Computed example of a mutant assay.
Amino acid sequence: MTDAAIPADDPARKLTVADPDSPQVRHVAVVGDTYSILVSGADTAGRYCLIDMIVPDGGGPPPHRHDFEEMFTLIEGELEFTFRGQTATARAGSTVNIPANAPHVFKNTSGRPVRMLCMAAPAGLEEFFLEIGDPLESRTSPAPTLDRAQMGPRIEKIKALAPKYRTELLAP
């Protein structure tokens, strides 16, 4: 252990109080899931972001990996997480940590919505979601229902923008 000094306080940084129902929180639907950006990289000098996620039954991303850490704390419901090919069920109260670069996916197979908090470090995941998603009024606003013709262009946009946000989509 070194005796390095702690850097001086940065008075330009402000306290963040995140209320998911605050009018300042941005909400976005990403292929059926609803994500509310509670704490952004702008709030943390890029160190991390915190996203409140509502995942409907059957929801979840395709298999993917990225070069940042991701941690989920389930508030309500349960999800199946597949990590490096091994599947485990996480229930409300559980926290799941996904190391950077590891292939993973989660899916809601519980029959009811799941609510969880997702922290990504460093930040950037929230910007990806805001760029690819559909803006919503609130975290309880319904996500748009997309037919197959509408889903195609969104999936192509996600594929095109994923590398910009250090993410790789994997074959299912």
Results as ranks from 00 to 15, higher is better:
88 A>V: 12
83 F>V: 15
71 M>I: 14
164 K>S: 07
88 A>N: 08
72 F>R: 06
25 V>K: 11
151 M>E: 04
118 C>R: 08
108 N>L: 10
61 P>T: 00
114 V>C: 15
63 P>G: 08
91 R>P: 04
139 R>A: 10
113 P>Y: 01
104 H>I: 04
31 V>I: 15
118 C>F: 00
60 G>I: 06
53 M>D: 08
169 L>V: 08
96 V>P: 09
77 G>C: 09
122 P>S: 04
162 A>W: 03
3 D>I: 03
139 R>K: 14
42 A>H: 04
114 V>I: 10
30 V>M: 11
108 N>R: 10
86 Q>L: 04
105 V>T: 06
147 D>C: 05
19 D>G: 04
105 V>Y: 05
145 T>D: 09
125 L>A: 12
99 P>V: 07
43 D>K: 00
43 D>I: 01
8 A>H: 06
21 D>Q: 11
156 E>V: 00
109 T>Y: 14
37 I>W: 04
49 C>Y: 02
64 H>G: 07
32 G>A: 04
38 L>H: 02
127 E>Y: 01
164 K>V: 11
134 D>C: 00
156 E>N: 13
121 A>T: 13
116 M>W: 01
60 G>H: 12
54 I>K: 14
87 T>S: 15
92 A>I: 04
1 M>H: 14
137 E>D: 15
55 V>D: 05
137 E>V: 00
42 A>S: 13
159 K>L: 11
53 M>P: 01
2 T>N: 15
21 D>L: 09
130 L>K: 02
33 D>W: 00
164 K>E: 12
51 I>N: 05
81 F>D: 15
95 T>W: 06
141 S>Q: 02
162 A>H: 04
135 P>S: 06
91 R>I: 11
111 G>L: 08
146 L>G: 11
118 C>G: 05
143 A>M: 13
116 M>T: 11
9 D>T: 13
68 F>Q: 12
155 I>S: 04
148 R>H: 09
172 P>C: 00
90 A>T: 09
148 R>Q: 14
87 T>Y: 06
140 T>Q: 05
18 A>L: 05
110 S>C: 08
117 L>P: 01
62 P>Q: 08
157 K>Y: 08
161 L>S: 09
9 D>F: 08
163 P>E: 06
40 S>G: 14
43 D>A: 01
12 A>H: 12
147 D>T: 10
97 N>V: 15
61 P>G: 12
90 A>F: 12
52 D>T: 03
135 P>E: 10
57 D>E: 09
46 G>P: 06
29 A>G: 10
22 S>L: 02
110 S>L: 13
39 V>L: 03
141 S>F: 03
48 Y>W: 13
36 S>A: 15
160 A>E: 15
15 L>N: 05
113 P>E: 05
18 A>D: 03
48 Y>S: 11
69 E>P: 01
15 L>I: 08
75 I>K: 14
165 Y>V: 03
147 D>F: 05
25 V>M: 10
55 V>I: 15
128 F>D: 00
12 A>K: 13
88 A>H: 05
140 T>R: 08
51 I>L: 13
129 F>R: 10
124 G>D: 00
73 T>C: 05
124 G>T: 01
28 V>C: 11
18 A>T: 02
106 F>E: 14
61 P>C: 05
140 T>H: 09
160 A>W: 04
156 E>H: 09
123 A>N: 02
